[in-house]
Design a protein around this nucleic acid. Structure first.
Lengths: 250, 250
DNA sequence: ATGACTGTTGCAAGTAGTGCAACGGCCGTC
DNA sequence: GACGGCCGTTGCACTACTTGCAACAGTCAT
């Protein structure tokens, strides 16, 4: 691993917490100011960091552009999107699409119910991995051994009284999800929010993404939401078939 | 500027165009395979690139997370958003928010008319800088000399017959915009789309962002759209006042 | 005007990145 | 089934690149 690059890249999450000046960056990196300066300059030249009027550095605009292009290259998302829209029009609730990558589950698309409140909102943010329906679906498909390793390493924050409490419960839940081919999150993340989700599978049958429908229980009860399950699963299957058919270009 | 970091960062836009394998990366960087491997590994460790099953590399998930955090740190966006929503509810058309950074203008927020079609859509993508109303507003506020330099360096693609044809016309337009305090794009980017925009100013009176309302002329004529100008300007002013009042922490 | 602070530059020392060459695994071909 | 090519990977010697230092410049407050 390249030390110089390593240091430079460490600056990014550091700045993600908020703007910082040269001295702060140097200190938190544990290097000389002049070193930090050169690293920042290089990042700056590539548009990844930006220097505001008060000379402090913050994350730059090209980061958006890159993330934008990256997400557009995800063919699952491309294929799934129109189906998510359709589903949203049919049932009205918020629809999510998520993938698993490097021990993280994150939303890559979202169609909001009604008007778009806080667009972007959670897209790109890591999902509450121990409770979210999509996370269960994605992890449930991993080989047994890997599931176990991951489950042991996770934290199990009790967002609500119905959150997954520990690794054993989580593994049991994953086994059930794997068996039944769908997943729920009934108030496990926020007391009043329920979700149902279904997996999207690639040509080899492996789960490549997961989708979910979320709704507050003041709008629909958990039972009513569950009655939508067949529709959600059907949508996921349609996406799966379309995705399996599409050969990735080279 | 650090050569190693420079090379590593050059990989990102390269991968933004699509996945690539080690050989391709090495070739396009002009370095030995082993060098490219180590750079990629470092990027990988930081989650910026991801290695898919076929061993090819593509942009990674943390990039989203970073972009996400970066956008949340933009206080203009935070403050403006509810006002954009309100404006959208009043007039129904698409509302954009944009900033200028490093010779680029880019959208940082968007409230779509009606249902959210293709969320994310253009957010993060560079704006057509020579014609967009928001671009004119942001550039018009720069000092005369800087405006001139930028105008000379730009390309002037003729998207339509009403696109800005050259630097002289652009500078003239900027002067007019600066004078009148608002801007339009009447079919300069897409023949059937009109926009009106207004600037958002910080405490020092400098333009820190710009907002615009866009609508196809099959829905409203340019004249009708222009009649909304007072409302748009008033919204921009409200945001300006709120933004000026809020002192950035530190 | 003085001092303390920040950001910036040139330079010498040595570390850390580089390219090479050789290895190993994989896949298609003969 | 063995061979040959292809791609990713590793160890190593060499030198180029990064590093920290120290001195300079600019800005603000005392």
């Amino acid at each position: 691993m390249s030390q110089t690059v390593d240091r430079a890249l460490s600056i990014l999450p550091l700045l993600a917490q908020g703007p910082a000046d040269l001295g702060q960056v140097a200190e938190r990196l544990g290097v000389h100011k002049s070193t930090a300066l050169r690293l920042l300059r290089t990042l700056h030249d590539h548009g990844l960091v930006y220097r505001q009027q008060d000379q402090r550095y913050r994350l730059g605009a090209r980061l958006f552009a890159l993330a934008q292009e990256a997400v557009e290259n995800l063919d699952v998302r491309e294929i799934a999107h129109p189906h998510l829209i359709t589903l949203n029009e049919q049932i009205g609730h918020t629809v999510h699409l998520a993938v698993y990558e490097e021990s993280e589950v994150l939303y890559i698309d979202k169609v909001e119910s009604r008007y778009p409140v806080r667009m972007y909102s959670r897209i790109g943010k890591p999902v509450a991995i121990t409770v979210a329906a999509v996370a269960k679906l994605l992890l449930a498909d991993l080989p047994e051994s890997e599931r176990r390793v991951i489950a042991e390493k996770l934290d199990y924050p009790m967002y609500t009284s119905r959150s997954t409490p520990n690794a054993a419960a989580f593994l049991k839940e994953l086994a059930a999800v794997r068996e039944q081919g769908w997943a729920t999150d009934l108030g496990g993340h926020e007391e009043s929010i329920n979700c149902i989700g279904a997996p999207i599978r690639g040509a080899a049958g492996r789960v490549v993404a997961a989708m979910s429908v979320s709704a507050p229980n003041v709008v629909v009860t958990a039972e009513e939401l569950l009655s939508l399950l067949p529709l959600v699963r059907r949508t996921a299957d349609v996406i799966s078939r379309e995705y399996s058919g599409s050969v990735t270009p080279h």
